[in-house]
Design a protein around this nucleic acid. Sequence first.
DNA 1: GCTTGCCTTCGAGTGCGCTCGAAGTCCTAC
DNA 2: GTAGGACTTCGAGCGCACTCGAAGGCAAGC
Lengths: 152, 152
Amino acid sequence: MSLTTDRLRDLIETTEGELPPLTTELVRDLDLPDHLAIAEVAALTGVSAHTLRYYERIGLVDVARDASGRRSYDRDSVGRVVFITRLRDSDMPIAAIQRYVGLVKQGPDTEPERLALLEAHREDILNRLRDLQAALAVVDYKITTYGGACGS
Amino acid sequence: MSLTTDRLRDLIETTEGELPPLTTELVRDLDLPDHLAIAEVAALTGVSAHTLRYYERIGLVDVARDASGRRSYDRDSVGRVVFITRLRDSDMPIAAIQRYVGLVKQGPDTEPERLALLEAHREDILNRLRDLQAALAVVDYKITTYGGACGS
DNA sequence: GCTTGCCTTCGAGTGCGCTCGAAGTCCTAC
DNA sequence: GTAGGACTTCGAGCGCACTCGAAGGCAAGC
């Protein structure tokens, strides 16, 4: 694990300031060790160990254990964590992610429903983007016309 | 008030589906009555009466009372509410808005500080936009390549 | 052998932003 | 004059997503 941790540290440090955020695909491309300890996943993804345990507890990720009972994240689990992180970053509620993961567990018959969930969430994201852009316009206006009175 | 409410209802209904979100400036242009009751402000802004009282309680807006002790929102108060709504829509924490409002109350000397606050928030918004776009890319990828396995 | 430190489980606590309910007041319509 | 409904204040409650703390296990280094 020490070796692994060192390699991971290198990996993270050399990629520091990585502008493209981590994606499931990117994770596949990094030549990560087969199995990561929880602290390594935390370092890699920026999700705290506490939160990783929480995600497992509520059924968002399944994580294997090693001989001594410790969590051992394989590539799929890490990919799942990264995916969940993107969904959370876009404010998808935990409950919706649970629903999605539940559908995945039920097998391929649920694909249409999953797709519908994703498409609904896509709409949410687009709405959020619009809200944010409106807010940005207001803030920019405030900044440039500073000194104006109304509503300030 | 009944007249006022009716006019407001017209105003809101005829503008239904208004794509440009309400701004402080827009509020100034609508020929609103001088004073609005809380329910009218709620209808106009989409902020619940409960929340409007809460905003007043924590010091985000000052609202005058009429002869019988009821809230009477003038144009400035409405503008303030709209401004706060934009800030909240962009996830500015209540505490930061309180700080901002506090600076406004302290007078014009605090303008540089206010500006700094707004500029910091502007950065936050830009970061959020980036996060959302990254998430959108991931969700779009999922939607288009549906059937792919990893991390789903 | 003992310390160090990361790990385990479990349940409880936290912070944020509302959201609600109770009890009472006031105006309008009938 | 009385019923209805919107308003008032106040404090408490809620939902979400973590976040933490306690109590203990296990492996490596001195």
